[in-house]
């Protein structure tokens, strides 16, 4: 007799899924106390939630219609690709007090990144989150890490155990990259290790390793994420991301070295 998953139980409670799911689940629940307990553990008062949020509608400010409709004609669909109009759109946004104003301003000076505003993928995958997190790193984040080698080794060991991969190979210099520290993070319940390096020019870089049961072997592939050079690859059960700086050639060399060292270890 197959076991119903928690997702199937939740789908049943939401009136989703195959119509026969409800019938099968109810029939089984009639004679299975454990299943009834699992259904109860996932049953919440949806009506109370809907009602509580109904009250929030009354707190909504009015839509600033006039400011928005005045601002919109300044910036049609292709505005972000037109240097002159871009400044106008930025001014329009600032004029109506939007938090995005500064974003537009920061894009003005750099033609290469201008289209990013409409092209960047949503933050969904673990790589997106790792890249967004790493984008906050500056050189000083890593120059001021305590130089306690024993502590760093202990942390690296802890991280190695978490992802089930010996990471000692990162301690020896890797194509000008100097190991600074390892951190254990997590993403959707999976262990995620971040090993931080500084390049010879002071660029903070990070190797991220995550458990990924369905991953197979793949070669190093270069990408640009959040204006940083990055390289991805995988081996059975694990996915890797090396990210940081803008030197794609260095990232590629370092990724190849890391891939070799970590798969051999």
């Amino acid at each position: 007799m197959s076991r119903f998953s928690d997702e199937e139980i939740a789908a049943y409670l939401d009136g989703e899924g195959d119509p026969s799911l409800g019938e099968r689940l109810e029939a089984r629940a009639a004679e299975d106390a454990e299943l009834r307990g699992r259904i109860e553990a996932l049953t919440v008062d949806k009506q109370a939630i809907a009602e509580a949020f109904e009250g929030l509608l009354g707190a909504s400010p009015h839509m600033p219609t006039e400011a928005l409709t005045k601002a919109a004609p300044l910036s049609r669909t292709d505005v972000w690709r037109t240097p002159g109009a871009l400044a106008g759109a930025a001014a329009a946004c600032l004029a109506i007090g939007l938090g995005v104003g500064f974003q537009l301003a920061s894009y003005r000076g750099d033609g290469a990144t201008r289209n990013k505003m409409v092209q960047e993928a949503p933050l969904e995958s673990w790589r997106d989150y790792a890249a967004a997190y790493h984008a906050l790193y500056v050189t000083d984040t890593l120059t001021h890490v305590a130089d306690d080698d024993a502590a760093r080794v202990r942390e690296l060991d802890r991280a190695s155990r978490a992802v089930g991969l010996p990471l000692d190979g990162v301690r020896a210099p890797i194509d000008e990259l100097q190991f600074r520290r390892a951190q254990l993070l997590g993403f959707e319940g999976r262990a995620l290790v971040q090993v931080a390096f500084l390049s010879a020019t002071g660029a903070p870089m990070a190797l991220c390793v995550i458990n990924s049961p369905n991953a197979g072997d793949s070669e190093v592939a270069l990408e640009t994420r959040r204006d940083m050079a990055s390289a991805s690859w995988s081996q059975p059960g694990l996915e890797f991301l090396l990210i940081g700086g803008r030197d794609a050639a260095l990232t590629k060399r370092a990724a190849e070295t890391l891939r070799r060292r970590l798969s051999a270890s």
């Binding site: 600033p64 928005l68 946004c93 938090g99 995005v100």
Partner: peptide, 13 residues
């Protein structure tokens, strides 16, 4: 407030 207004502006564009 910021995101809702920015979303409306983007929608109008």
């Amino acid at each position: 407030d910021d995101v809702a207004q920015a979303a409306c502006l983007r929608a109008l564009e």
